[in-house]
Design a binder for these strands. Structure first.
Lengths: 221, 221
DNA sequence: GATAGTTTCATACAACTGTTTGAATTGCAA
DNA sequence: TTGCAATTCAAACAGTTGTATGAAACTATC
């Protein structure tokens, strides 16, 4: 196993560079220069460029998922096996938002890397994301227990919308700030989380308001 | 100007190939082969590969934006300058969702191309997206008129969440179908639109429920 | 039907990519 | 110290990419 120094240096350099400049224009040669190691070291230690990216992403994903499940478990135990829907949603979107938003100067390379991964979506990462379904199922289960009289379809839509708001806000944070001329404060992460959770909760608990929107749309035609 | 035949063939071929296989692994050589034209034709007619992609995206974007504004204008005129918020949101997310969802076999190459553009986010497209802010401002204005007692911040967040739900549903449609085991029917586009509009409307009109979610989160800590 | 301008074509170019190779070096165990 | 495996290194490889070139083929105008 030896000192592992080279491996670690490559991982750190790659994370930093990808975070700063995106996957598109960072080459292996950039990475090894930043890490002060030889070009061949990447293939020696990781097998290929894609496996390097995958390892970076998996490491961070596992950390996020663990954090999510920790929050979920705590909430369910506190409620005797049934957590309030707000806390479930909080566990779902909180860790990601907390990791990716917040004051720029205190955003870690890891966080910035995950933002990039969310924006650019390169093949090795997409392959991993597809395996995330099992993880989401655990949340769907908890939500079903919290809202036993909602249909599965509504549960899944609520889950989808919660993730939508969280991820889109991260992806398009720059645009939202520009559009709102700074009025939307994305540095206040807990406020952002509260907004997402609040809206998702309404989506999951409100009556069938859709019909009204639908009727209006029909009238307009 | 002449017959324009080559130009058109390239555009059509590029759109089809990008739609099917993504920007990542479609080369100029693939495109010219599909279009049955010479390799140099792309640079002759478009200047560069990026300009070709940009032209494709701009064309489709303009069409979508025109459709959006048409719906918005109709709604505002019908309401004497102030449209109900549901119709504004419907005008905002309807055209995109209608263009990108629906039964797969009747999804046009144009629609599939826009889905790709939304998923992969390649540099020339990102540059154009950044110029979309002015367009969104028009919707923010209409929303402000519809909900005069909401703060600007709430308006922008509502706008952000509406777009979030629409775009994320398109981007991750495959995953949502898998996760829900087909229970979420993305072919019923009008139902999807109604759901998005409904939730966004709640987000924009409901009282400050956030405080409850926030308190719960605080308690859990 | 000659001319000028546009469009097509085959081909070459130049640069960059991730990966491989095989020798040199290092570190550790016997 | 010797021997052996793990690691590092410079160099080259093989493939692909978008773009440029200059001659050839058109097309329309007079």
């Amino acid at each position: 196993m030896a000192s592992d120094h080279t491996r670690t240096a490559i991982l750190a350099a790659a994370e930093r560079l990808y975070a700063d400049r995106g996957f598109g224009d960072v080459t292996l040669r950039d990475i090894v220069a930043e890490a002060n190691v030889n070009l061949a070291a990447v293939n020696y230690h990781f097998g290929s460029k894609d496996e390097l990216i995958a390892e970076l992403f998996v490491t961070r994903s596992i950390a996020t998922n663990r954090e999510r499940l920790r929050e979920l478990k705590a909430a369910e135990e506190q409620g005797g096996g049934r957590a309030p829907i707000e806390l479930i949603l909080h566990a779902l979107v909180g860790p990601t938002l907390r990791g990716c938003l917040g004051p720029e100067n205190q955003r870690s390379a890891a966080a910035r890397f995950m933002i990039r991964a969310s924006i650019e979506s390169v093949p090795p990462i997409r392959r991993i994301k597809n395996r995330e379904i099992d993880h989401l199922r655990k949340f769907a289960g908890a939500m079903r227990r919290a809202l036993p009289d909602r249909s599965d379809v509504d549960i899944y839509w609520g889950l989808n919308f919660a993730l939508a708001m969280a991820h889109h806000t991260i992806r398009e944070s720059e645009r939202l700030i520009k559009l709102s001329e700074g009025k939307c404060d994305l540095d206040d992460v807990e406020d952002v989380i509260a907004r997402v959770v609040s809206v998702a909760t309404m989506a999951l608990t409100a009556g069938k308001v859709e019909t009204k929107a639908r009727a209006l749309a029909r009238d307009a035609r």
